[in-house]
């Protein structure tokens, strides 16, 4: 798994690529945790994640709660197809704020 971070002002963007599973959660948390308090908007790009397991899903739920508690928002941008499918069948898609990329649908992101 690879993690890339961009911070600009009150917005932090994190891009995760590869397999996001229980082996990667600790590193993910180490990298992302400091951003929770620092950023108003935490944007997480999952477009290059090939697989996400239940442990990583649980971590995202935790992160969503933590950002809210800190007065910010977690926004998932650009889900890969496997991630979208997995979130859908685990009924987790509605839990998150998901921003669709422009042109993806009638109601795409601005």
């Amino acid at each position: 798994m690879r993690i890339r971070i961009d911070t600009s002002g009150s917005r932090a963007s994190v891009a995760v690529a590869g397999r996001f599973d229980a082996h990667e959660v600790a590193e993910f948390r180490t990298v992302v945790e400091p951003l929770v308090a620092a950023a108003d908007e935490l944007r997480l790009d999952l477009s290059n994640v090939v697989f996400i397991d239940s442990t990583a899903l649980a971590e995202l739920v935790r992160l969503d709660k933590a950002t809210r508690a800190a007065g910010g928002t977690l926004v998932l941008t650009d889900l890969s197809d496997p991630v979208r499918v997995i979130m859908e069948i685990t009924a987790l898609l509605p839990v998150f704020t998901v921003e669709e990329p422009a042109g993806a649908g009638a109601d795409g992101a601005p």
């Binding site: 889900l79 197809d81 496997p82 979208r84 499918v85 859908e88 898609l93 509605p94 704020t97 998901v98 921003e99 669709e100 993806a104 649908g105 009638a106 109601d107 795409g108 992101a109």
Partner: peptide, 18 residues
């Protein structure tokens, strides 16, 4: 934000799954 139209998003693989 497009939480209201979840089924439109995604690419070919997602559509094939649906």
């Amino acid at each position: 934000m497009s939480g209201s139209t979840p089924t439109v998003a995604g690419t070919d693989r997602y559509r094939a799954f649906k």
